[in-house]
Each structure stands twice: as C-alpha cells, then as structure tokens.
C-alpha cells in the first residue's frame, strides 16, 4: 500500500448514487467542463496535479465473460481519483474551505453525503469511502503542481533570453538578464525532498 510518492498523494474514493440522480450530476459536470471560469477555484487551489471523476452506471462495470459473473447492483457509483500535493488533512481542509459549494454540487447526489461543511463529518465520510493505492508512480516525484507551472514559466523566459544573448552587446544583455531575473525570481523555489509524514 502506498498512497504517497514524493510530493503527491493518491486519493481514491467511491460513493453510491441512486441511478436517477446520476443525470443531474452529469449535467453539472457538463457545465463545469464547458464554462471554464467555474474551474477557477480548482485551478487557484494549485495543489492538484490531476483529478478526475468517473460515473459508473450500475450495468456498466466491465464484463468480459470467461466465467466472470455479471454485477447486479442497485446503485450507480461515483469514482474520484485525485493526485494532490500535501497531506490528506490539508487537502480535505482546503477542499472544504474553498470549494464547499462545488463539492456539495458533486457529492450531494451520493448516498449519506453529509455536506462539505462542517469539515469533521465531511472528513469522516471521505475516510469511510476511501480505498488505498497499491502502486503509485509519478515521473516527477520531487515536484508539486506549482513547481510544474513555475518550471514552464522559467523555461519560456530562459529560451527568449538565450536567443537574445547571441545577438546583443554585453550591456544590452546585462539589462535583459536583469529583467529575466525579475521575471523568474518568484519561480525558482527549490524542489527536493518532501516532508516526512505517516
């Protein structure tokens, strides 16, 4: 079992939903997907590298024959997979504090969802419906979501300065270099070992 690799935590959650409620949730996701400003809180939280919700209708669990027994379920299921930076408690706290309306819109269709505020019953619910990761891989375990965004900003500025360096005088270059440092200085935070937890 390994929910953590470097600076990312793998969260897996599954919750049951009455089938008729699934369509409301699908509509909510459709709107969220197409009205980008609604994703601003999710983006601004800035510690989620990747996240997804997957609705599995009760008759849509993969069935391959070969002796597999078909599922006979009353509920549809909502799967949530998140790859986030920080600890479980920080993540759930931030979700509850910043995204409470959005989370309620997504999970209120799941059975027994208590609401994302107050945070204590919300945490109890997530802990109840979470299951652990057996194997977790990341190509860049030392980097957070903010490190990734910063690295691309630095790379873009660096490429521009590299081009300019070859065609400028030392004085012109020194001025451009100073501007470059001003542009990237907030994006040079050191990556490295994650804090020990657990």
């Amino acid at each position: 079992m390994s929910n953590i690799n470097g600076k990312v935590y793998a969260l897996n959650v599954i919750t049951p939903m009455k089938p008729w409620k699934t369509w409301i949730l699908r509509t909510a996701f459709f709107v969220l997907d197409h009205v980008k400003p609604l994703q601003n809180d999710l983006i601004n939280l800035s510690f989620i590298e990747f996240a997804r919700w997957v609705i599995i209708p009760r008759d849509a669990f993969p069935f391959l024959g070969n002796g597999q027994r078909p599922e006979e379920l009353k509920y549809n299921y909502l799967l949530f997979f998140s790859n986030f930076n920080g600890t479980w408690n920080q993540y759930i706290d931030a979700f509850s504090a910043v995204l409470s309306k959005g989370l309620n819109l997504i999970w209120r269709w799941s059975e027994k969802f208590p609401g994302s505020v107050p945070v204590t019953p919300f945490k109890q619910y997530i802990a109840q419906v979470q299951f652990d990761t057996d194997y977790y891989y990341t190509a860049y375990p030392h980097a957070t979501a903010n490190d990734l965004k910063s690295a691309h900003i630095v790379q873009n500025s660096f490429s521009r300065l590299s081009t300019f360096a070859a065609q400028s005088t030392p004085q012109q270059f020194a001025e451009a270099y100073l501007q470059f440092v001003l542009q990237v200085q907030a994006h040079l935070g050191e990556t490295g070992e994650a804090p020990q937890v657990g």
Binding site: S2, N3, N5, N89, P141, A143, G198
Partner: peptide, 17 residues
C-alpha cells in the same frame, strides 16, 4: 522519468495522516 525524487525507505501513507 521518476529519477529526481528523494530516495525514501518509507513510502507508505495511511488514510488520513
């Protein structure tokens, strides 16, 4: 890929540490 992380002997993490 996967090379720059810290070498850690403990890679577990419970539900809600």
């Amino acid at each position: 890929p996967g090379s720059l992380g810290p070498h850690r002997t403990i890679e577990t993490g419970g539900h809600n540490e």
